[in-house]
Amino acid sequence: MNKLFFKIFTLTIGFSFLYFPILTLIAYSFNDNKRVMVWKGFSFRWYKELFQNEQILEAFYTSLKIASLSATFATIMGVMIGFSLTRISKIPARPFFIFLSSSPLVMPEIILGLSLLLFFISSNHIIGFPSSKGQLTVLISHITFSVAFVAVIIQSRLSSYDKNIEEAAQDLGTIPNMIFWKVTAPVILPAILSGWLLAFTLSLDDLVVASFTTGPGANTLPIVVFSKVRLGLSPEVNALSAIIMLIVILAAISIYLINRSNIKK
């Protein structure tokens, strides 16, 4: 009995720690007062103001656009890396390629952002491209740091499944390109999806690299939110947090339900 008590105690404290700040933020998003922490009454006032805030809406749209493009390109290249590292036995200088593909994982984002910004500035001086900093430069930067994460996911999936299936297909006379599309791709599809989702979240969440590489007309959501809360509190941001939490919780519950029905089948 003592053991069970300790278990429930630990889990309660742990999950309260994880959820208390988020739930408080959601509760205060309904507070009808410009001073965030002084309760005046229940209202949807800040939600109304949030949906009238052009700057936030535009930034949200920009973020979604960059994140989905970045996730798509990063996934394509991540699959290429994962495939070349696990499937091509004669790739020359293999450790070198492993080093190439995994070093972005250990680079602090502040150094990544700084180096990319300086790179874009000098390449603009030398060859005139990119003509200005903006959505394109943010997109390139996001692809660059996401590729390595996707590659890790794909690689672990590819190395853990039985290569004999591919060899069997080859023995049966399937041409290599067909092997990839008909055999390998369906098997690693879950890894491709989770790689895409991870790259999408990484891009959506990034503040530091985007702050360095952004330009006029390319403010992403984290940049706008950060400028609002850097020095003080903002009731609109409380409302935004509540909406984002709601989306995440709904997504998590639907994934849970899908998983459960799959298991039952």
Partner: peptide, 21 residues
């Protein structure tokens, strides 16, 4: 699922939550 929800939700907003608290 309850562990993954904070993992997915915005990093910046979770830091901001402590600023409020």
């Amino acid at each position: 699922i309850m562990l993954i929800i904070p993992f997915w939700s915005s990093f910046l907003l979770r830091v901001y939550a402590w600023k409020v608290l």
